[in-house]
């Protein structure tokens, strides 16, 4: 905690990584500032050193190769909403990015990396990326590492935000005909989500051959509802299947959040509702161009 913090703006990833490795703590990595600045303005965060990574070219750009879409961590929400590759290959991510709160001014500055590093249970990007099986590339102390986003979210010493830099997000392109939906339930237009669900589904002759489902905003971590969708494989999407899914999901919420986005009891029940609605919408969309 210092009254007179320092500010550094490295020009390359290597330089940034080297700089971070030489610091002993009290530093914070900042890009779009949409996560950190409110905390700083509020006095909840008082860093000694700001490392502005906004100038790192390695963290920019969206490209596709070998069925994997690579998205730079500095990509802002507006780019995710409007980028042609994302629209074609990862439409659920584009949709989730457009559902994030804050309006256009925030969407123009808020980065993909900042959103993920915040690991905020109410945010919209992570549930979608988890349902899409995303991986991430990060650099810490000069070493580059690639891991699944799901694994990263359970790590306790990844160092993101202060020691490690999230470089890129790598997402398998959604297969043609994949049905998808991002369902968000919030108390009012300006509220954070109270329960969110991201679903993908593939159908063959009316039967579900593959499905993913994640549920966000109901617990302190995003829930991978794979166990709940397991029973759907090989089945048709019927009223009974929908009911089964809705019943199974609340059981996955061990400790529901209970805050001004809603009571725990309600959040737990809503986990089932948004899951069923997301899956129903994904099934309806499956196979359509």
């Amino acid at each position: 905690m210092s009254l007179y913090p320092s500010f550094a703006r490295p020009n390359s990833l290597a330089q940034a990584s080297e700089l971070l490795a030489g610091l002993s703590g009290g530093s914070v990595i900042i890009a779009g500032g949409q996560e950190i600045m409110p905390h700083i303005n509020h006095g909840a965060m008082q860093p000694d050193i700001y490392i502005d990574i906004g100038g790192l070219k390695e963290l920019r750009g969206i490209s596709e190769a070998d069925g994997v879409v690579s998205i730079g961590a500095l990509t802002v929400h507006r780019e995710l909403q409007g980028n042609a590759i994302v629209a074609e290959k990862l439409p659920m991510l584009a949709d989730a990015a457009s559902r994030a709160g804050g309006g256009r001014q925030v969407h123009n500055r808020a980065t993909l990396g900042g959103n993920l590093v915040a690991m905020h249970p109410l945010y919209d990007i992570a549930p979608a990326l988890l349902a899409l099986g995303a991986e991430v590339e990060l650099v810490k102390a000069g070493e580059t590492r690639r891991t699944s986003l799901a694994a990263l979210m359970h790590e306790t010493s990844h160092g993101l935000g202060s020691e490690a830099i999230l470089v890129r997000v790598l997402v398998p392109a959604m297969a043609a005909g994949t049905g998808w939906a991002y369902e968000k339930l919030k108390l009012s237009g300006g509220a954070y989500g109270s329960a969110n669900a991201a679903a993908t589904v593939q159908l063959d002759a009316g039967r579900i051959t593959a499905a993913t489902l994640t549920i966000g905003a109901v617990a302190d971590r995003i829930i991978d509802a794979a166990a709940a969708v397991q029973g759907l494989i090989g089945q048709a999407w019927t009223a009974a299947a929908a009911e089964q899914l809705e019943l199974r999901c609340p059981a996955l919420v061990k400790q529901p959040l209970s805050d001004q986005q809603g009571s725990g009891e309600w959040r737990q029940a809503m986990a089932g509702v948004v899951a069923r609605r997301a899956m129903a919408a994904a099934v309806a969309r499956a196979g359509q161009k």
Binding site: S188, G189, G190, D259, Q260
Partner: peptide, 15 residues
């Protein structure tokens, strides 16, 4: 507990 506009949410046009 209500300390910011994150928790004190006033109506938006869509409401």
């Amino acid at each position: 507990l209500t300390r910011s506009f994150m928790d004190y949410v006033m109506p938006r046009s869509e409401d």
